[in-house]
Write a protein that binds this DNA or RNA. Structure first.
Length: 1060
RNA sequence: GGGCCCGUAGCUUAGCCUGGUGGAGCGUUCGGCUGAUAACCGAAAGGUCCUGCGUUCGAAUCGCAGCGGGCCCA
């Protein structure tokens, strides 16, 4: 049996009930079980980092995933829905360090690495639990009991396996490179871990003395004084022009400066040189080999040993001095220049950001603290041309926000250069991108520019690098699985693959030495890079891998271009030479209402929790999916969430509306499927069913194209425009009839078909609401129906209901009704008052056909007694025409006779002139004096004159006139409806049930109106379910008595109710 | 500084690929409806289509340059 539902849509109750239902019935597992033999759809979840709380972006991400998985599942696919968790890495280490009050790595060593990673592990597992609950609250159906976790040994093995393969293919390299280095975390960090923020730094111009010359300098600019002790060269752009300037100082001293030609004004200003003169112009390439003396040779002994000279480099820009200071130990470009010209890689800075012994005078100092001292030293030697501060964007450690430095260190690299072509080929040919440019432009550009990937980190909480090296003979062993290690190391028991346990494993080398593990752990990005096969248990097991890999689908935000899209592709190409995923949907970010990033410091963060609390999970889901294209950024606007909520609420109201009638009538949809009642259906029933099929097609197409916003908008548009605003309005009277006739059954069946289909169509997006509708509409009727809406097949358009012409005709009628309302408003006639007719001048035959076809709908909705459809282009004969002579044309044409012509035109009359000019462009007109002139169409201006009581409104379908002139009958009906409305209103006020009987008394003093109503009392009585209705008793009486003013007419109405 | 995306009414957006009178929703104002009713419907006002230049008979749409926002990189 169908059941009535609560008056109000209460999301909390719905979600609570449905969650309980899902839990009790194990609906999730049964749904997956039901599709296990379907077409495989291998989805891989990009693992969120276990921070403990999800934000709007994470929520949106999972909602997209869940919607697509539910959609695929309803289409019969056996979906893989393993959620993932990213649980290693510096962010957690930093959190744990904060918690334990640690300052540096030394504190960790003292605490014990074993204890430390235990803390990290507990943290990650606890947060994973918290976040799982948050995702569940969003209605996300994933295999929450069996997620993949990067900290599991089985998972770690996948990373090891890739490294072993990379090693075998010579893609693994160890070497000295310049890396981003966090001096606090004392580790290398990946490009992707560098966060750019504004920062104040020194800005100094330094004079390098040219060797063997007096007062001749090469001038460079830098923001890092601390790198001057590491300087080994200066670089110029080979194609740029440089000048030697003779510059006179304020103190009269004359210097010669080598700078870029364009830099002269700037440098003269910075160095406060009152006058100067250009001595010589040189091309950059001609400057190569120009030697200079190290500025800090005295302070840094090693500097005195090295040669310093000018070299060309293409990357040099002409900003500042046009000459760049080169410290190969502290910059990537510098390092490359150094390598190219065989310069020493001098790097007297240690891992904690302090100078080493090699730095001479500065040894032991923190580099940033040394800045001022170095500046002073340069100043004292008169080598400082200028000194200032600059605010610029500079890289910081993404976790601890410390300003990074660049250090040349020994690291492990994945040689991306060797596999880049394969990666690009996969992007171009093997992966389907949504939107297309995500792959063809954005990701492609990133990969094309990618450098070797530094995968080693000098930290603790991560996947240990599986490389063992013999300190004596340098022989190396790389392990791909735990078992391999156990066997080779001849271990007896099991072993955990984390530090410090794995560090204790040593191997006997062929040379007799003892091989020890490289102390590094992996870059945490390398963890998730192996997710596509680690989630399948590979290499521990291979069956699932062979069956499913590579992924059919992944979807992540556009930041993952540099992240997961890249890391996965790199790892898979390195290991298997194949792409790990076949299609990608790249989605956007959630921004605040102004399109700004949500951040704690800006105080503009909105959490998913808040939204669920206020509007529920379904509304949050529907909002985030519908308000922008997946790949565009989503501006979070509360007002718009409220609008979506309103739409969902309308769906609830629409769904609720017929239930009391259906329940009362014991309507059984199984006995009366819509298909069987087509013969009894009115045109509007067939119309809504046709629109329903179009909507099914539209939503399906949108989902297949991954344009989820279009799917939601199509669905909502149908619910709002077609169902709520039109169909429900049309059929309301039919649901009130008490007779059990086929006409009413047709409405029930139509509504039922529509609602069940809507429940299925909205299932991927609003899993709770759709389920509650389905449970009532379907499960309450048919025990054999699938347990959950989510176990149903995705609806396909039913051909039998498709009728494109009917849809087109109804569209026209709606247009005309709208124009009619507009005209009514102009005529000042409320809809409640009938009008004698509407007159339409159709723009084309289709409009005429539609109005004839759907005449009943048109009459009903316009509350008109008749409709006249004129022929296309026909003028309505009741319309008066007013003509005005166009003096601005008549004047110049007829000069002094203009007045006479004008008079003659007025004499001829508007109507007859209009008839003529409707047919031809010009006519002969006789004037009063007997002469004849030629009148052209542009000499007269016609205006339609609408008769009294009629109003017109233009529409796409043509002019629509309403004839609002009253007749006695119309007036009588108008007042009758006014009275009915008032009594209904009072019934409502007394909280009477629909079928309660009343007695009513209506007192109207106005004789005219009273007479108009007199013959209508039985009609009124029927409409308001009054057993007795008395017109004009001595006094109104009843439980409720009210005074009404209707169009200036006073009425007193009293009613009494009694329970049916 | 570079790559990609976005810029349309007060706000959120459709239209842009394939050039031809810019269309919705929210909000505002006015009105209507009244057994979906703390709901619903209609109308009006509101636009330098980010700016400039170009192509074209014609540009929101195509091209170039710039400005602003986002992501990524340097």
């Amino acid at each position: 049996m169908l059941q009535e539902i609560p008056e109000k849509y209460e999301t909390k109750k719905v979600e609570e009930q449905i969650n309980q239902f899902w839990n009790e019935t194990d609906a999730y597992h049964k749904t997956r079980e039901g599709r296990k033999n379907g077409k495989k759809f291998f989805f891989v979840d990009g693992p969120p980092y276990t921070t403990g709380h999800i934000h709007m972006g994470t929520a949106w991400n999972k909602v997209i995933k869940d919607s697509i998985l539910r959609y695929r599942s309803m289409n019969g696919d056996a979906v893989t829905d393993t959620p993932g968790w990213d649980m290693h890495g510096l962010p957690i280490e930093v959190k744990v360090e904060e918690k334990l009050g640690f300052q540096s790595k030394k504190d960790i060593e003292t605490f014990g690495v074993g204890n430390f990673i235990q803390e990290c592990k507990s943290f990650a597992i606890e947060k994973k639990g918290d976040m799982t609950n948050q995702f569940k609250a969003l209605g996300i159906w994933m295999d929450w009991d069996n997620p993949y976790m990067t900290l599991k040994d089985e998972y770690i093995e996948a990373a090891w396996w890739v490294i072993q393969k990379a090693h075998e293919k010579s893609l693994l390299e160890e070497g000295k490179r310049v890396v981003n280095w966090c001096p606090r975390c004392e580790t290398a960090i990946a490009d992707s871990e560098v966060e750019y923020m504004d920062r104040d730094d020194d800005s100094i111009y330094v004079k390098f003395p040219v060797k063997g010359e007096q007062d001749f300098y090469v001038v460079i600019w830098t923001t890092t004084p601390w790198t001057i002790p590491s300087n080994v060269a200066a670089a110029v752009h080979p194609d740029a022009e440089y000048v030697i300037v003779k510059a006179t100082r304020e103190d009269g001293k004359v210097e010669r400066l080598l700078i870029g030609k364009e830099s002269v004004p700037l440098i003269m200003k910075r160095g406060k040189y009152p006058s100067h003169e250009i001595l010589e112009t040189k091309k950059g390439s001609d400057l190569q080999g120009l030697e200079y003396t190290a500025p800090l040779a005295a302070e840094v002994p090693a500097q005195a040993e090295m040669a310093h000279a000018v070299y060309p480099a293409d990357y040099v820009s002409l900003d500042n001095t046009g000459i760049v200071h080169i410290a190969p130990g502290h910059g990537l470009d510098d390092f490359n220049v150094g390598s190219k010209f065989g310069l020493p890689i001098f790097c007297p800075v240690g891992s904690n950001g302090s100078y080493t012994k090699e730095a001479g005078k500065y040894a032991g100092m923190n580099i940033r603290e040394a800045n001022d001292i170095i500046i002073e030293d340069l100043k004292s030697k008169d080598l400082l041309l200028s000194q200032g501060k600059i605010n610029h964007r500079y890289g910081h450690c993404w976790r601890c926000k410390t300003a990074i430095i660049y250090l040349a260190t020994e690291q492990w690299f994945l040689d991306v250069g060797k596999i880049k072509d394969e990666m690009l080929n996969a992007i171009d040919n093997e992966i389907e991108w949504t939107p297309d440019w995500a792959g063809s432009a954005r990701f492609r550009d990133w990969v094309a520019d990618a450098r070797d990937w530094c995968i080693s980190r000098q930290r603790y909480w991560g996947i240990p690098v599986p490389i063992w090296t013999c300190p004596d003979c340098k022989k190396r062993a790389v392990f791909g699985t735990k078992q391999e290690l156990i066997t080779k190391a001849q271990l007896t028991g099991d072993i955990e693959l984390h530090r410090p346990y794995v560090d204790e494993v040593t191997l006997e080398c062929e040379c007799g030495g003892k091989m020890v593990r490289t102390k590094d752990v992996f870059d945490v990005w390398f963890d998730s890079a192996v997710a596509s096969f680690a989630t399948l248990g590979f290499p521990g097991r291979t069956d699932l891998f062979e069956e499913k890999w590579p992924a059919d689908f992944i979807t992540e935000g556009h930041d993952q271009t540099r992240g997961w899209f890249y890391s996965q592709l790199g790892a898979s190409i390195a290991a298997f030479g194949k792409t790990p995923y076949k299609s990608v949907l790249m989605h956007g970010f959630t921004m605040d209402k102004d399109g700004k990033k949500m951040s704690k410091s800006l105080g503009n963060v909105v959490t998913p929790d808040e939204v669920i609390e206020k509007y529920g999970a379904d509304v949050l889901r529907a909002y985030s999916l519908s308000s922008s294209a997946p790949w565009d950024d989503l501006k979070f606007v509360w007002d718009d969430v409220a609008t979506v909520n309103r739409t969902v609420n309308i769906l609830w109201n629409v769904y609720k509306f017929p239930l009391p009638y259906m329940v009362l009538d014991n309507f059984n949809p199984l006995e009366h499927p819509a298909e069987s009642l087509i013969g009894s259906m009115r045109e509007e029933d067939k119309w809504i069913l046709s629109r329903l099929q179009s909507t099914v097609a539209e939503v399906t197409e949108a989902m297949d194209e991954k344009t989820l916003h279009k799917a939601l908008r199509g669905l909502f548009n149908f619910i709002l425009e077609d169902l709520s605003r039109w169909y429900i309005q049309l059929i309301r009277p039919r649901t009130w009839t008490e007779a059990n006739d086929p006409d009413k059954l047709a409405v029930y069946a139509t509504l039922y078909e529509t609602y069940v289909t809507i429940a299925k169509l909205s299932a991927p997006f609003m899993p709770y609401l759709s389920e509650t509708m389905y449970q009532n509409l379907v499960k309450n009727i048919d025990e054999n129906a699938p347990l959950s809406v989510h176990m149903n097949d995705w609806p396909a358009p039913k051909e039998i209901f498709v009728n494109a012409e009917l849809e087109e005709h109804m569209e026209i009628v709606r247009n005309v009704v709208e124009a009619s309302s507009n005209a009514r408003q102009k005529a000042g006639r409320k809809l409640r008052w009938p009008i004698s007719r509407i007159v339409v001048v159709p723009t084309d035959e289709a409009v005429a056909a539609a109005l004839t076809h759907l005449r009943d709908v048109l009459l009903e909705q316009t509350n008109a007694k008749d409709v006249e459809v004129l022929a296309v282009g026909e003028a309505w004969k009741d319309l008066d025409v007013q003509m005005t002579p166009n003096q601005s044309v008549l004047g110049p044409t007829f000069k002094q006779d203009a007045k006479k012509v004008s008079d003659a035109l007025i004499e001829a009359g508007a109507k007859s002139l209009k008839e003529v000019f409707d047919r031809v462009e010009e006519m002969e007109l006789s004037l009063a004096d007997g002469t004849t002139v030629t009148i052209t169409a542009d000499m007269v201006i016609f205006e339609e004159l609408i008769p009294e009581g009629i109003a017109g409104s233009d529409s796409d379908c043509g002019m629509v006139y309403v004839d609002a002139k009253l007749t006695k009958e119309l007036e009588s009906e108008g007042y009758t409806r006014e009275v009915i409305r008032r009594i209904q209103d009072m019934r409502k006020e007394l909280n009477l049930a629909v079928d309660d009987q009343i007695t009513a008394a209506v007192l109207i003093k106005d004789q005219h109106v009273s007479d108009l109503i007199k013959d209508m009392t039985s009609l009124i009585a029927t409409e308001v379910r009054a057993g007795e209705l008395i017109l004009n008793p001595d006094a109104a009486s009843g439980d409720l008595i009210k005074e009404w003013d209707i169009e200036g007419i006073q009425m007193t109405i009293g009613i009494s109710g009694k329970k049916a």
